[in-house]
């Protein structure tokens, strides 16, 4: 993401601008985050037309619900990403796509992840291969299931055949791995 020079480069001013429904702030938000947000939505939905609709729905939700955002609980970017993820995941569920993905074995998903890595377009997803190739594949599959498919702790427990009580520590190990390579 290359950011333009603006007062909104400061997160506090951006949040203030967004909460006061300042049009320039929303312009800045769109210009600087559309690719990142769309990338996540597209990764979940996999269809350009539906992904564009979902980004529109998400962006309007951000505008509508900005008063609910609390600086003390998360960064504005995380909050927006969560809205996009939830919107896209709901879209998939409403269309009944969820079930077919659930039936994939871990190997299939790992295979798919490899395919995405190999065939990723050169410009937009340039960092993906570097980042994902450093991440252990078991950790990537776990993070993707939760982050892109909206798996609950119970579903992770069933899919990976690990006791519910150890799901949290397993997720922590995966994120620790991700933290190391994104440092």
């Amino acid at each position: 993401m290359t950011k333009t020079l603006s007062i909104y480069n400061n997160e506090d001013s951006l949040v203030l601008g967004l909460k006061s429904r300042n049009r320039a702030a929303y312009n800045y938000l769109y210009d600087n985050y559309n690719k990142a947000l769309y990338g996540v939505i597209f990764r979940i939905i996999g269809n350009e037309e539906l992904a564009n609709d979902a980004l529109q729905e998400s962006f309007v939700k951000i505008w509508k619900n900005i008063d609910q955002y609390q600086e003390s609980k998360s960064s504005i970017y995380t909050w927006m990403l969560n809205i996009c993820r939830n919107t896209a995941i709901d879209e998939m569920r409403s269309k009944g796509f969820r079930k077919s993905l659930q039936n994939d074995s871990i190997e299939d998903v790992a295979q798919k992840a490899d395919e995405v890595n190999q065939h990723s377009p050169k410009t937009d997803q340039i960092g993906l291969k570097d980042l994902v190739s450093k991440l252990k594949s078991e950790h990537q599959v776990l993070i993707d299931k939760i982050y892109f498919e909206g798996y609950t702790q119970e579903e992770v427990s069933a899919e990976f055949q690990i006791p519910l009580g150890t799901v949290k520590t397993r997720i922590r190990a995966a994120i620790q791995n991700l933290r190391q390579i994104t440092k």
């Binding site: 990338g39 960092g127 570097d130």
Partner: peptide
């Protein structure tokens, strides 16, 4: 934790 996940999300950047 947020930072790491956000960077992961960024790696999928794509234009609408």
């Amino acid at each position: 934790t947020e930072k790491a996940l956000n960077m992961y999300a960024n790696s999928f950047e794509k234009s609408p």
